[in-house]
């Protein structure tokens, strides 16, 4: 092409090449951090799964172990925060969204079981708010005015649907271990969450799909409570003097 004019200014494709190479470097580094986060989340979840065979009296021991695992997540998420905040948040967030959701749900379940005293007042059956989750992981939540790493509202809501699933399973297993009170706490908790989800105007997306599934968790726990009530295994309010006697 011997001509004074050329089609391409070479700097155009140099720019694109540099850009693509930088992007793939960032993705690689992110992948490494996220893999460590996934491993750490998996170990917290593995510990938490023991709750299904742990009597309530031993929750504190179990919860303490989970707290240690969560601390590990906190440090990995700190690294992720540092790297991801240098880039547009939504450019890469799909890479870590799932891992972060699992981290959130492990923290919520841990706090529900009475753990994480550093944030809020520990008690059985409490719900960590989105802000409290941010405090646990030491990252901002639901950012609107600046572009940096944070935990999104959607991630929190999706995690809640994992929590209701986990707790509905716990209701059954608590009964097996002779704990007839816990299903009542769980039932009230999940019902309140379900009522909350019903307030949302959901679009036809993943959140709707997952929120729709919460009703099955409600039902599972209701069935457990029904079984217990039918057999007189739970104390009713005002029970005692007014209890129906068959004789």
């Amino acid at each position: 092409m011997a001509s004074e004019s050329t089609l391409l200014d070479p700097s155009i494709f140099e720019y694109l090449k540099d850009n693509l190479e930088e992007e793939s470097r960032i993705r690689e580094t992110l992948t490494q951090i996220i893999q460590r986060l996934e491993r750490s989340v998996a170990s917290a979840q593995a510990l938490l799964s023991r709750v299904h065979s742990t009597p309530r009296s031993r929750y504190p021991t179990l919860v303490a172990q989970v707290e240690t695992a969560i601390q590990e997540q906190v440090s990995v998420i700190g690294e992720l925060n540092e790297l991801a905040s240098q880039h547009p948040y939504y450019k890469y967030n799909s890479k870590w969204a799932r891992a972060i959701q699992n981290a959130i749900s492990s923290a919520i379940v841990c706090a529900w079981l009475g753990g994480l005293p550093s944030v809020g007042t520990p008690s059985l059956g409490r719900l960590l708010t989105l802000e409290e989750i941010g405090a646990v992981f030491k990252v901002p939540t639901h950012l609107k005015d600046r572009d940096a790493f944070h935990i999104t509202l959607e991630e929190y809501l999706l995690s809640l649907t994992d929590v209701t699933h986990e707790l509905s399973r716990l209701a059954t297993n608590a009964v097996t271990m002779g704990d007839f009170e816990l299903p009542l706490t769980i039932s009230a908790f999940i019902k309140d969450l379900f009522a909350g989800f019903q307030l949302l105007n959901l679009k036809n997306d993943i959140l709707r799909k997952r929120a729709d599934a919460v009703k099955y968790d409600v039902k599972r726990v209701e069935d457990v409570v029904y079984d217990l009530s039918l057999r007189g295994l739970i104390k009713r309010a005002g029970e005692g003097d007014t209890e129906m006697k068959s004789e």
């Binding site: 639901h142 509202l153 969450l193 009522a195 909350g196 989800f197 307030l199 105007n201 959901l202």
Partner: peptide
Amino acid sequence: GRFHDMFEGFRDEL
């Protein structure tokens, strides 16, 4: 519900 206010906030954001 206990979480009514919280979810109302979420609804507005969504």
